[in-house]
Simulated assay, not measured.
Amino acid sequence: MKILVTGFDPFGSDKINPAIEAVKRLPATIKGAKIIKLEIPTVFNKSAQVVHQAIVKEQPDYVLNVGQAGGRSALTPERVAININDGRIPDNDGYQPLDEPIQPDGDTAYFTQLPIKAMAKAIRAAGLPAIVSNTAGTYVCNHIFYQVQYMRTKEFPKLKAGFIHIPFLPEQVITRPNQPSMALADIVKGLTAAIGAIVERDGQSDIKAVEGQNH
């Protein structure tokens, strides 16, 4: 089994992005699955081009995109990607789409194929906070999540894919009072546990567990 794991480069005012820093530190194999690591640009459309090239080259069984979610205190596997680009800030190429569809002929939304509840449970079993998230935002994180799902429908029907958000690193919150953070080693530990759950649930449906939210 091969799992393509991607992490974004730094964006906005930050000089570091915990996504790629954590991805680079993942083991080469997790529970027997080969981990293919890929840095992608925090750029609408270009990020999808880079991931598409990697899928064609590597032919992975799974794709897990990882992104930073400042303000979150837990690792959050994402349930759904929506067909909208609405940039709060410009991307790293200076592009800031507002209320634009990602794919005019794409579905309104796509659900992940990953066992997100099993992933959250595995992260908590590793001693770290995790909850299932029902919004991946409208920036480049949601964009790449949606684009890979769109690729599945058009080109790679056997591929299973999804997204997980991770918190800020401690050094990122020095000038952000009251913002939660997580040590890089813990993020790596949590991602490793989540990927382990993906491998263990291969060929099975997700577990039945309470992960719903009222708001």
Rank of each mutant, 00 (worst) to 15 (best):
V188T: 11
T138H: 05
A193D: 06
E200V: 11
T153Q: 12
E155A: 06
P157N: 06
K154Q: 15
I166K: 10
G190I: 13
Y150V: 02
I164F: 03
I166R: 08
R152I: 15
V199T: 10
Y150N: 14
A193R: 13
K189F: 07
I195H: 01
A185N: 14
I174F: 03
L169A: 06
S181F: 10
R176Q: 14
I198Q: 03
C141M: 12
K160T: 12
I166M: 11
Y139M: 09
S133M: 10
F163K: 08
Q172T: 06
P177F: 03
L159E: 02
R201T: 11
V173M: 07
F145L: 08
Y139P: 02
E155K: 12
V173I: 15
R176A: 11
V140G: 03
Y139E: 13
H165D: 13
P180I: 05
L191W: 02
E200C: 07
M182P: 08
G190N: 10
F163Y: 15
G137I: 12
F163D: 01
I174D: 11
F145T: 10
E155D: 13
V173E: 07
P177N: 09
K154S: 03
T138M: 11
D186F: 08
R176D: 07
T175W: 03
V199P: 05
H143P: 11
V199Q: 04
A194T: 03
V173L: 07
I174W: 00
Q179E: 15
S133F: 02
E171Q: 15
I195D: 12
R152W: 01
F168C: 06
V173F: 07
Q179A: 13
I144Y: 08
D186E: 14
T138K: 12
K158Q: 14
L169S: 05
E200M: 09
M151V: 04
R152Q: 13
S133P: 12
A161K: 01
L191N: 06
Y150H: 15
G162Y: 00
N178A: 11
F163Q: 02
V148C: 06
S181I: 05
P157T: 05
E200Y: 06
G137E: 04
F168Y: 15
L169Q: 05
F156H: 02
V140P: 10
K154N: 04
F156I: 02
F156E: 01
S133N: 12
M182E: 07
V148N: 06
V148M: 07
I144H: 06
P167Y: 01
F168S: 02
F163H: 07
A194V: 05
F156S: 00
F156R: 00
A185I: 11
F168A: 05
A194R: 00
M182S: 10
E155N: 07
I144T: 14
T138P: 04
Y139G: 04
S181N: 11
V148E: 05
I144F: 10
P180S: 07
M182F: 08
A185M: 06
Q149N: 14
I195T: 10
F145R: 08
P167L: 05
P177D: 11
Q179V: 12
Q179T: 14
P180E: 08
H143T: 09
E171F: 01
P167F: 04
L159M: 02
I198G: 04
G162Q: 01
